[in-house]
Nucleic acid binder design. Sequence first.
DNA 1: ATGAAAGCGCTAACAA
DNA 2: TTGTTAGCGCTTTCAT
Lengths: 334, 334
Amino acid sequence: MNIYDIAEMAGVSIATVSRVVNGSDKVSETTRQKVLNVIDKAGYTPNVFAQGLGLNTMHTVGILVPDISDIYMSSAVFYLEGCLHKYGYDCILSCSGFETKQKEQHIHMLLDKHIDALILVGSTYAGSGRDHAKTDYIRDAAEKVPVFIINGAVEGKNIYSSVCDDRRAVYVVTRKLIGKGRRHILFLTDSHSYSSNEKMAGYEKALNDEGLPVEGNLKIHVKNDIHYVRDLLLKSEAICFDSVICTNDSIAVGVVKFAKERGLSIPREMDIVGYNNSVLAVSCEPEISSIDNHTSEICDGTIENVISVLQGDSNVRKHFTVPCTLVKRSTTDF
Amino acid sequence: MNIYDIAEMAGVSIATVSRVVNGSDKVSETTRQKVLNVIDKAGYTPNVFAQGLGLNTMHTVGILVPDISDIYMSSAVFYLEGCLHKYGYDCILSCSGFETKQKEQHIHMLLDKHIDALILVGSTYAGSGRDHAKTDYIRDAAEKVPVFIINGAVEGKNIYSSVCDDRRAVYVVTRKLIGKGRRHILFLTDSHSYSSNEKMAGYEKALNDEGLPVEGNLKIHVKNDIHYVRDLLLKSEAICFDSVICTNDSIAVGVVKFAKERGLSIPREMDIVGYNNSVLAVSCEPEISSIDNHTSEICDGTIENVISVLQGDSNVRKHFTVPCTLVKRSTTDF
DNA sequence: ATGAAAGCGCTAACAA
DNA sequence: TTGTTAGCGCTTTCAT
C-alpha cells in the first residue's frame, strides 16, 4: 500500500496525493476530499523512510541521559517526551552513563539516525563548566544538529542551554542557615558537574559574604547511595557540623538516617536540605525540605526552543535560567 | 558524502561499497581494505533513511511505557535500553499514560515509524487479564511487528509475554503473615492491571487455604501517593487490620507513615510489605520489606527474545515467568 | 569478484 | 489546480 495505489484508487496523480497528505493548499476541496476518503478507507500511512529520504528528517529528536533510572532524569524525560509528542515528534532515548567515551559513542549513534535535534539531560554533559575542551564533543555534535542542554551551560554555535539558578538557591539557603546561627554547614555532593559546581559556588559565596571560612573538610563528595552516606557520616567522627546541604534528595535521606541513628533532633540540632524535591523527600521521616529546580519548566522551555529552532525561528534564547525554590518541610525551620 | 563519493574515491562501484559496508563475503580482501580505508578517511556513514527504505528497517524498537517518571518503569527502561544498545538497536520511547485511547494512539505513532519490535512495559497493557477484548489493540499491533510484554500476559500470534510470579509471591507472604498470627491483612493496590489481579489472587488463595474469610473491606484501591494513602488510613477508623500488603513501595511508605502517626510499633503491632524493592523501600524508617520482581531478569530475558525473533529464530518462548523474592527488612519479622 | 541498473516510496521542481 | 519526472542514497538481482 503506497502512494501509487492511493493515486490510482483516487484517480489522481501521486503528486496530488502527496499534496493532500502534506496539507498543501494547492488542491481543490473536491479532490482533497476524494483523496482523503480513499486514504481513510485504505488505511494508508506514508512510508516514513521514504519521507525521511526525501526530506532528510523523520521528526525524531534524540534524548541522551546518563541514567534513566535516576528519579530526576526520568521525570525530565517524562516532560520532554510529553511536549515533543504534542508537536508530533518522537524521541529516541539513549542512556550513556557518565563516562565521556560512552557519551560520545551514544551521541554518534544518535546522530547517525539523523535526529532533528539532540537534547542532553543533566549537567553531567556540561562538564565541570571550567574545562572548555571537555565539552568539545558537544560542539562537534552541534555541527550536525541543534543541541539543547537541560540544566547545563555550554557555549557554542547551534547550542542552546538552560539552567536552574542553583547557585542562587544554595546561596540563599546557606545564608538562611547562617542567619539562624549555624556555623558548620556540611555540603554533600555526588558529582563534579556544572550544576554541582554552581551549587558549591553558591555555598562558598554565602560563607564568604557572611565572613565565615570555607572549610575544606565540610565539602565532601559522596556516592549517590542512601546507606553509603549514612555510614560515611557515622564513621566520620572527626568532622563536626550542625547542618547539611545535599545536591540531591537521596543523599539527604542518608543524612536523615545518620541523624536519627545519632539521636539528633531535626531540625533543632541539625538542619537538612535536599535537592530536586523528588518523592524521596517525602518518603522519609521527618520529611525533607528540598530545593525544587522546576524541571517541568526547564523542559517545557527547552521544547519550545527546539520547535522554534526546527521551524527556523531566529528569535530563540541561547540560554535561559529558571529560578529554584526551597520547598519547606520538616528538616528546616526557617 | 554518499555511497557514490566513496565508490569514486575507492575506484569501485557502489555495489562493492555496499557489500563492504554490509560485510558481504563476496569481496576480495584487497578491495575490502581499499574501500574500508576510504570510508574511514572520509568518515562516511550510510544514510539510515535510504537503508531503511531498501531494507524496511532502521534497527529501532519501540518502547511504550505508561509513565517513565515512575521509579519501577524507568528502571525497566534502563535495562531494556542497555541491552538493546548492545545489539545495535536504538529505542524510540513513548509515554502513553493509562488510558486505552492514548495507548492506541501512541502505538500507532510507533508503528508508523516502522519499528522492528514493540515492547510494552508494565502490566497495564495486559488489561485485567480477564477481558479478552480489552487487549485486542495489542493483537492488532502484533499483525505488524512482534510485540513483547514486560510483566503481563496476553495471548496471541506474534505476542511474547513475561511475568513475574506475583501470585505466588503474595501467596507465600500472606501465608507467612497468617502463620505468624495475623488475621486481618489489608491489601492495598493502585491498579486493576493483570499484575495487580495476580497479586490479589495470591492473597485470596492464601486466605482460603488457611480457612480464613476474604473480607471485602480489606481489599482497597488507592492512589499511588504516599500522603493520600496515609490520610485515607487515618480516616478509616472503621476497618481494623494488623498487617498490610501493598502492590508498590510508594503505598507501603504511606502505610508506614500511617502506622507511625498512630504510634503503632512496626512490625510488632503491624507488618508491612512493599513491592518492587525500589529505593523508596530503604528511604523510610523502618526500612520496608519489599517483594522484588527481578526487573532486570525480565528485561534481559525479553531482549534475548526480541533479538531471537528478529533474527528469525523459531525457538522462542512465547511466555516466561520469573520468580519474585521477598527482600526482608524491618517492617516484617518472619 | 565486480559492475550496471532497477527499484524502495516519497517530495518537489517544472510543465501544462 | 493537476500531472510528469527527476532525484533522495541505498540494496540487490542479474550480467559479466
